[in-house]
């Protein structure tokens, strides 16, 4: 009786994906099976890689930011070479080439990839769906202030916005400004204030409760 397509919660059901495989899905399966058959990789290695990627989360980036807030020398190393600084904290970021850009009283940074959806997922985990949407990608370079306002972030006119379009080999993380009233907090407590959006630039770090 699917006369409507709403669940009891009022949200639409996600369509089942029981249609035939697409061309590219077939290509991926064929390539994966060939690589396994030829001994280039194994099913266990592939599963381990998926697990490793799923284990990455914004909490990793938050630890990097919190360290930068607490340790001026680390902050300098992070701004000079964010990949090396992240590895220094023990994160396995693979081949990720990372640049950290820092928010200050006068400057707010926000990250986008207009050409596709490049994201520092080897540090922050998979990107949010909206980051990959055509709307975010096309609008934030044209009207960043309006887009940030829609995220609930209205910046004063005295703040300069720097939009970073990840068009090539580098990926970006924003170091949000350290919130006021956090002088007594340790690094773990500080990291809990650093949200995913604050590291993309569509939000700020939370204030302590």
């Amino acid at each position: 009786m699917p006369h409507d397509h709403l669940s009891p919660s009022g949200h639409p059901y996600r369509a089942d994906n029981d249609m035939p495989l697409t061309y590219w899905q077939c290509m991926e399966i064929a390539m994966r099976e060939l690589l396994i058959e030829k001994g280039v990789t194994t099913t266990a290695e592939i599963a381990a890689q998926i697990d490793a990627m799923d284990a990455r989360s914004p909490a990793d980036g938050a630890r990097v930011v919190a360290r930068a807030w607490c340790d001026p020398a680390f902050r300098q190393r992070l701004l000079a070479d964010a990949s090396a600084a992240s590895r220094e904290l023990g994160f396995d970021i693979g081949a990720l080439r990372l640049i950290a850009v820092e928010n200050t009283q006068d400057v707010h940074n926000v990250i986008v990839c207009t050409l596709c959806s490049c994201y520092p997922r080897n540090l922050l985990g998979l990107s949010p769906d909206w980051y990959k949407s055509r709307e975010y990608r096309s609008r934030v370079v044209v009207e960043p202030r309006r887009v940030l306002a829609e995220f609930g972030l209205t910046l004063p006119d005295t703040t300069t916005i720097r939009v970073h379009d990840s068009t090539a080999d580098m990926r970006y993380i924003v170091i949000p400004a350290r919130p006021a009233g956090t002088e007594g907090l340790d690094e773990t407590a500080l990291a809990a204030l650093v949200t995913r959006d604050s590291m993309i630039g569509t939000g700020l770090a939370r204030s302590p409760a």
Binding site: R145, R162, V163, H164, T167, A168, D169
Partner: peptide, 14 residues
């Protein structure tokens, strides 16, 4: 059409 003329956009160009 810029929202604020001196906001900036950085991109990587070969």
């Amino acid at each position: 059409k810029a929202e604020r003329p001196d906001d900036t956009l950085d991109a990587e160009i070969y």
